[in-house]
Design a protein around this nucleic acid. Structure first.
Lengths: 249, 249
DNA sequence: TAGTGGTCTAGACCACCTC
DNA sequence: AGGTGGTCTAGACCACTAT
């Protein structure tokens, strides 16, 4: 029959909207510029605010927009490339790559971490919290889990908490010979504590980088680092010779 | 003053709901089991369907749930670890790691790729499409961009398209000496064509892995691979020989 | 055809920021 | 106080899958 079926796959409104907005961002807006508010944009496009928001959410997920409650929606700068594993085959250290020590506690790790460490249930481990700052912006929050066996020289009493304690744990780690590491990346949503460090709302999309540090005796430490997925592009420089990785002039 | 402010941060309903559901998934459901439908779940928790859906979306983002239109919501298996760069310092080849050649065309690459390749505007490049299958599931869709200069021996006429053509392009690549590669990972949303390959809806969250292949003459090829973020955990096995990286001990 | 998730609407109220 | 984005509601209809 003559049902020509031209629009056999009707594009969802929010999807089309996203495309239109994306092109508008390329052409008519500069980085940092604020967009009209959601109510006005929705009216301008003749859609409900919820539909407009669905398009904005996608664009934010892709790092094109930045939205802040009480402030507005702005055009986001291109994602920053953050090196992960450029300091490969090295223990986490202070004052490189913009890592900043926040503090350290001693507690039982989550079950998933316990499985990676191979520590028995109920055993507490050193937990170092770090934050990674790039361009004045917190881009990552990390929890580094170090079993007591990996920091044998650490007295429970020197610097019971805070950055000094964290530094002490890291110093202990450096004494061990690192045999290798193991890294994985997956999508997650920010827990409340990480979200706070990253200046995002809980549930914000993050890239979760899990690193296992191996010594001859097994897994000596595990790091769970959550990177802001909206602003970060994780870079891995596997290339052994560093000749071609042109520096910033 | 006496404003005790006990609930200074009222948790959003969908966030609380997500926590409750997450615990229920751990305790009362097996992998593959189907959940009650959204309307019933919403009624059971006394919330609007949209709110319930917000919680489900988060859980799907975290890889806990799988939702299929017309079918239902099921408990997802743990994410599969897919090796990225285990074949490090090697050209992409066929029939390893479950990559399957789909076809090849010749077209002008997107602007972002053109910038990475350094090809002039208007110049078309070979574009090889591959799909990565793991456990019977498509987990990644890749577009490999190869400038004509990187495949000099390729006649325009042998196997004009399809898997045979793709194989021919890859064979040409193997003739070059690979100097190194450069990899980055970021969050994105699936374009329509990739979504189709991955059996997902357009806009589904994906991990975009961008790889640059270097030879002595510069960037010889660029690969843009999109991995299903809901089902994949990207693994990087950097561990090399530990000799050169002797710590300060 | 019945049931599922996906899209969309037109409101309302709240939390947060700035002035 | 006024404006912003964030949450939430109670509907409606659509696209897809299975039977």
């Amino acid at each position: 029959m003559g049902t020509t079926q031209l629009e056999s796959v009707p594009e969802p409104k929010y999807w089309h909207l996203k495309t239109v907005l994306s092109e508008a961002l390329d052409q008519d807006f500069a980085v940092g510029e604020v967009l009209p508010n959601e109510r006005e944009l929705a009216a301008r496009f003749g859609v409900a605010r919820a539909t407009l928001r669905q398009a904005l959410e996608q664009l934010e997920l892709e790092g094109r927009l930045q939205r802040r409650r009480g402030v507005g929606t702005t055009v986001a700068p291109p994602r920053v490339g953050v090196a992960v594993g450029s300091t490969a085959n090295g223990w986490p250290v202070e004052s490189v790559d913009g890592w900043e020590l926040v503090g350290a506690t001693e507690a039982e790790p989550p079950a998933a971490v316990r499985a990676l460490l191979g520590t028995p249930e109920g055993e507490s481990v050193h937990t170092v919290r770090r934050t990674r700052i790039t361009g004045g912006q917190a881009v990552a929050a990390e929890l580094l889990y170090v079993p007591a066996a990996s920091a044998p020289g650490l007295s429970p009493l020197d610097a019971p908490s805070g950055p000094a304690r964290a530094r002490a744990v890291l110093r202990e780690l450096q004494r061990l010979v690192l045999d290798g590491q193991d890294r994985s990346v997956e999508l997650g949503s920010a827990r409340a504590d990480d979200a706070k460090e990253l200046d995002r709302l809980p549930g914000a999309p993050v890239l979760v980088v899990t690193t296992r540090y191996f010594t001859s005796t097994g897994t000596a430490a595990v790091s769970i680092a959550t990177y802001r997925a909206d602003t970060c592009r994780l870079t891995f420089t596997d290339s052994l010779d560093l000749n071609l990785t042109s520096p910033t002039a």
